[in-house]
Each structure stands twice: as C-alpha cells, then as structure tokens.
Design a protein around this nucleic acid. Structure first.
Lengths: 202, 202
DNA sequence: TCCCTAACACGGAACGGTCAGTCTCGCCTG
DNA sequence: CAGGCGAGACTGACCGTTCCGTGTTAGGGA
C-alpha cells in the first residue's frame, strides 16, 4: 500500500508506557472496511466497528480524530503503489491513476472506496486526509509530468492543474459513487487518452 | 424548475378528506435545503427539518419514502430548465448540463447539491430519484444528440453513452463534493469541448 | 340546499432503539 | 508508574413510528 499519510499519528517513542498496538489498529481498519461495505456512510457506526474488531471505542479515537478520517485511511490501505510509467505520455498519466482503478475493480474495494469518498466530501477531517493523499500521490507527480509534457510541446501550456485533476478523477469517482457500475479494465487509460486528445498541441 | 420527477407522490383526488398541503411541502423543502447546507449529509437530521419548517415528521414521511429522497428533491428544485441549444454541437451539449452549473454557482446551491449527491450515492431511494432525473433530463436528450452527431460524422460512433455521461458529469460532481472549489462560469462548456475533442472524427 | 359523517392531513409529542463522544474502570506492558 | 488496552456506563441526539386532538374535505341522505 502507498503509506496513507502518517495521519494515524504514531506517537513519538520518547516516553514511558507501552506502545500503541499496531495489531489493534489493523483489526480496526479491517473491521471498518467491512462495515463501510455493508452499511454505507450514513449507516456506518463506530460501535459496530469496535465490536467487530473486538476493540474499544477509546482506542479508535486515540488513533483518529474522527470516524471519517478513519474511513479514508481504511480505504487508502487498499490502493496499491503506482507502477513505473514507461516513456509514452499516455502510459505515464495512466500510471498515476491506475492504482485507484485497481482498488475499485473488486466489489469490496468498490464499496469501500465509495464510502471513503463520501466521508471525504462530508467530513472535514476526512477531506483533509483524502486531499493530502491525492496531493502527494497524484497531484504533485502529475504537475511534474504535465510541466515536462508542456515543455516538450506534447500538450498545450494553458491548462489549469486542478481542472486536469478533476477531468482525470471525476469520471471514476462518479462511477464509484453515483452510477455504481463496475469499473472496467482500462477505464483510467481511457481518461488519460481523453485528456491527451483534449490538450494536444493545436 | 425542471419538475423533479413526480416522486413526492401527489395522491389521486378521488377520495375523501383534505388534500395534502403544498404549503407544508414547500416549507419542508426550503427547510431541508438550509439544513443540508448547514450540516452536510451525515449530520443532517429529520427532526431539525421538521422543527425548522414547523412541520410534523409524519408529514415528511407522507411525502417521501426516505430522507435521502427528500434531499434530492430539494436540490432538484434549484436546477433551472435547460436553455434551447443552438446549432453548434458544442453549444447543444453544453445546454444539457449547464443547468447544473447554474445551480452550483451560488454558495447555497453548491452545498445543497453536494449533499444531494452524497444522498444519491449513499441512499437507495435517493439514488433512484437522482438517476431518474438524470435519465430524463440529461441522459435521454444526450442519447438523441449523440446519435445525430454520429450520423453526421461529427463524432465517432464507438462511444458508450454512459462513459460519455460520466465524462461530462464527473468533473463537476468532483468539484462539488471532493474539491469543493467554486464552479466557475464556463466550466460545463469546457467539459463539452473536451468531449468533442476526445470523440472527434479521427 | 344543507348538514352529517367518514376519511384523512396536519402539528405536536412521545416512544424504544441506536449512536457519538466522553469517561471510568481494572488489567497489562514497557 | 505512565499509558495503552477491552469493556462498559453515561448523556444527549437522532431515527422511524405511533398516538392524539384539531381541522379540512368529499360524498350521501334529507
């Protein structure tokens, strides 16, 4: 997984007492994913997660500032690392977003990602966790790549980075949340192709 | 407004007793919009809507099968009718989705639409109401239009209608929900342009 | 025409059940 | 001995439903 922001604040190891149990944390995230898939966002309950993970609610609130932040972390753990992009511009753009597609292609991942997106849109903390991840793993590398492509005259220079991001991510998020249709293989590659056609030089 | 599906089932006028109060219904929808904008989806409560509208919860559940369905109806009432599209393909596609942009361009509309989208993604009834509206007001006219453009060789024939829909709607929904940035004028026109570039004949 | 009555909408209030977020235990670990 | 842990109590809020008393309307009998 792509180290989902250190948000679950691992406490500094310069004090007395036991360390926080990574075992409990993992059990909580696992239970959270199952509850997310079963009950959606509004129907999601901390009590159920605690019970399913045989953990105490206190432990959950020790790791995360809000349940939304926990939901996003739980989902981010399903997203694999990005592959090495080749030389082809289309391949390199696809490589940035294909981890999302990979996570979304199972029924479980589809549902978990949906709830995480709902959390990110509905909960302040969750939104920050999500945007931090996107910023680091997608937006930043995308910015470098686009700058390079613009310099090479592969794409036009008059683009707004965030507009491009929305064009690449919007469709797959729409599919995950509103239409709920399966994400077919190559979906993200299509978005990359569409972007290149849109912003091709002349 | 674009008659948001008759979903709030207006009962047939062939029975005894008083008619349902359209005044109450309007007050409820108004109150619902305010609560949506203030509290988001998970923080949204029926009790608060009832109190704010000086209505009884009974009345709410008489009109709508679930609070999600009510939220979607409340938001749909903000969406104006589509303008007449001109002759230009780009204009005609833009005309289909610009009502969404118009509704999203105020702070209030932005927040209300966001919650409606969350409801549609999270609640079964709400999702049906939303998809029914999109199907009637956007998907169906879009299908006709695309068929015409394909026949005239303006666009390629190998497109999937729902993929196009996602490409047109995904970015604005992403902006409403995840990035929460203001929707600038011409946003939808850009999506239409991007689509035409992507699917242009060769 | 007039009025009675059954049927039902309304606001308000209450219900049992669930949940969030906090707190307190007693135990255990480093 | 500081602090994590599971367990569970607690308060206030909420959901979805039900009941109440009042008001409004169509249909029917005189």
């Amino acid at each position: 997984m792509s180290t989902p922001t250190e948000t679950p604040s691992t406490p500094s190891r310069s004090r007395k007492g036991p360390t926080r149990s990574e075992v409990s944390k993992a059990a909580i995230l696992e239970a959270a994913r199952d509850e997310m898939a079963e009950n959606g966002w509004r129907g999601f309950s901390v009590d159920s997660v605690a019970k399913r993970a045989s953990a105490s609610k206190q432990t959950i609130y020790r790791w995360w500032p809000s349940i939304g932040a926990m939901c996003v972390d739980a989902a981010l753990a399903l997203i694999p690392d990005a592959p090495e992009g080749g030389r082809d511009p289309q391949e390199r753009i696809t490589a940035l977003i294909i981890p999302l597609e990979a996570a979304a292609r199972t029924g479980h991942g589809h549902a978990v990602l949906r709830v995480a997106l709902l959390a990110a849109a509905d909960d302040k903390d969750a939104g920050e966790v999500w945007r931090a991840w996107v910023g680091r793993d997608i937006r930043q590398p995308l910015r470098m790549l686009l700058a390079e492509l613009a310099a090479k005259r592969v794409i036009r220079r008059d683009f707004e980075l965030d507009d491009v991001l929305e064009q690449l991510l919007g469709p797959i998020f729409h599919r995950l949340t509103i239409s709920r249709a399966p994400v077919k293989e190559g979906f993200c590659a299509e978005q990359a192709t569409a972007f290149l056609r849109t912003y091709a030089q002349f």
